[in-house]
Structures are given as structure tokens and as C-alpha cells.
Write a protein that binds this DNA or RNA. Structure first.
Lengths: 167, 167
DNA sequence: CGTGTACTATTGAGTTCGCAAGCAAATGTA
DNA sequence: TACATTTGCTTGCGAACTCAATAGTACACG
């Protein structure tokens, strides 16, 4: 890896660990996303975020989540979640449920069809993920990546998304 | 391998290393992207990919790259690159240059204005990246993440993107 | 030389997502 | 009670992508 071939190089090539890590993250995400998205879309008619949303809901207590919490868990904005769930609701995979205690809140709740669809997609999708990742990295290394990446912003909320909804 | 076939409500979250790593990658990317994109856009009028493109061009031999190589290096489609460069060309940051040896090829070449703009943005952007990442991870850990992530698909092409595609 | 296949780049159409703005409900202050 | 602020959600609009289709070019093969 020889980043700099600069004739009159004022521009500093990527070299610092942080920058290397960032670039690698960008590229790994781009490549993996495109690959996984393709097969998920083709085989089950779901986007990556559709799947992630369904999956987050399935893991949640009562199989439902406040939309705002879903947004945080998915690293999306509230508006992104509205649009995302629009499609899922239209497909009958998710339904809306109001919250008695806070009328501002709308729950996104997995339907039976949603559970079924997720289960149908799950095996193949997880298989794709595993083959993509395990092809190049050992289990131990994967764990290491996961540990490290989970300490970055964005991962923090994910664990509590299903529980912390005190509003 | 179904992540959550738990009738009695005992939530079994995604656990396999590959899945954990994938989820963490997704979230870290989403959160970091949004944060960095915001400040880059606000301070320099560049998107993340604008910056990455400029940066890749700056590192390349002769400060220019075939569009197809740029696409691979950025994990974008050729069409995505056409659109991306459209804006950069309109802004005078990049110009087109034809290839004598292969008339299909169009080079994207950094202009002086492009170099200047990149340099102006570089310091702040790199600073944002570093503070975002180094806030939570040590240098050694960052290096580890980079090493691991670079072994994933998508990173492989980056090294040769600046060079030759005659393969 | 002509033909078929592969490759580079662009364009049209459609999708996804964020920002800004706006509404409704909750919360704080007096 | 009255009013300001914050929070959750939705919508208009625009930006950035992708896919499919298209045109021009390169190259191997007969």
C-alpha cells in the first residue's frame, strides 16, 4: 500500500490509524452492503434496513419498539424510520400501535406475517453475512472487530433499544 | 441459526461473531457517516464521497484516475461516479481528460482548485475523524480495526485503484 | 475484414434517506 | 391556568444512489 505518488505532494496521504480505520470502514461497508443487499432484495424483497428493522423488532420486548428507539438502533433519523416503516406497514409486516402513557409515541409492532417473513429471510441472510465475513476473517478476529466496533458511537444505544424507553 | 426463536420471551440476541461484527459495522458506519458528513458539508460544501473522491484523485499518479477505477475505489457503481463527478466538475474541482490509448476511458483529473479545496477541507475533516474514533479507541486498537477491515472485500481493490487496470 | 463479446461511460427512472418545517403532546415554570 | 420549551412523529423537498438500457470502443477469432 503506497498511497503517496504526489509530484508536489502537499496533500498528506492516509496514514494515521484513525484515517486508515475510517477508510477501511467505509470500503468494507460499501462492498458488503451492496453484496448483501442484492441477494436479500432478490430472494426476499427486503432491503438491508427492512431486515434490520424487522430483526430489531423481533428482539424487542413484546416485539415492538417506539419509532424513535428504532431510529436510534438503526442509526437512522426519525424521518427515515417513518419512510422505512411506511413500506413495511403497507406490506403488512409491521403495524402501528399507540401508547397509552404518551400519546406522542407510536409503536412499531411486528405482525405475524412480519415474524414469518423475517424467519424466512433470516437463514439465508445470516448465511450470506457469515460466508462474506468468515471467508476472510477467523471467528476470533470477527469477535475482535465486533468488540472494537461496538465501542464506537452508534453502537451504544443498540443494546438498550429494546429496554430503555422511559421517554 | 434463527436468531430469535424464543417462544417464552427469553430474548436471544444476535450472537455469532460474524453477525455481531456485521451489525456493529452497520451501526458504526451509520453513526459516523452522519456525523462526519454534517460537518464536512457545513464547513466545506463537500459530501463524504466528494471528499473521498478528491482524496483518491490526489493520491493517484498524475492526480487522475479512470472513472471506473474511482468507482471501485469508492465502492460505487460507474453510474454513481458519473453523478458524483458531475457535481465536482461543475464546481471546477475536477476536470475530464480523455485517454489516448483507450477511447472508452475518461480520466477524472484533479484541478488546482480541487487540490486547494481538498487541502482546505482535509485538516478539519481528518480532525473530525480522529476525534470521533480516538475518543473511544486507542491507536493500537484503531490499527487493529484497520488491519482487520482491510482484509474484507472492497478494501482489496483500493490499493491498486491508483495504478493499473490492465488486468 | 467482419463479427461477437467484453468493457467504459452516460442517461432515464425509481428508491432511499436526511434536513427543515410543522403539528401534537408532554413537561417545566410561575 | 397560562405560556415556553422539549420531544415524537410526519411531510415537502432535494440530494445521492442503484438498476436497466444505450452508445461507443477494444479485442479475439474466423
Amino acid at each position: 500500500m503506497t498511497p503517496q505518488a504526489n509530484p508536489d505532494g502537499e496533500v498528506r496521504p492516509v496514514a494515521r490509524p484513525a484515517e486508515r480505520a475510517w477508510t477501511a470502514l467505509l470500503r468494507a461497508h460499501g462492498a458488503a452492503t451492496r453484496r448483501l443487499s442484492g441477494s436479500l432484495q432478490a430472494e426476499h424483497g427486503l432491503t438491508l434496513n427492512d431486515y434490520e428493522a424487522l430483526s430489531a423488532l423481533a428482539r424487542a420486548d413484546g416485539r415492538r419498539l417506539k419509532r424513535i428507539d428504532l431510529a436510534r438502533g438503526l442509526s437512522l433519523t426519525p424521518s427515515g424510520v417513518t419512510r422505512l416503516l411506511e413500506g413495511l406497514e403497507r406490506a403488512g409486516l409491521v403495524r402501528r400501535a399507540s401508547c397509552e402513557e404518551d400519546l406522542r409515541v407510536v409503536y412499531a409492532e411486528l405482525t405475524e406475517a412480519g415474524v414469518a417473513r423475517l424467519e424466512a429471510a433470516s437463514c439465508g441472510h445470516v448465511g450470506s453475512i457469515r460466508s462474506l465475513l468468515e471467508e476472510r476473517l477467523s471467528e476470533g478476529e470477527l469477535e475482535e472487530v465486533a468488540d472494537l466496533l461496538e465501542r464506537l458511537p452508534g453502537a451504544a444505544e443498540s443494546g438498550s433499544a429494546a429496554g430503555d424507553t422511559s421517554g
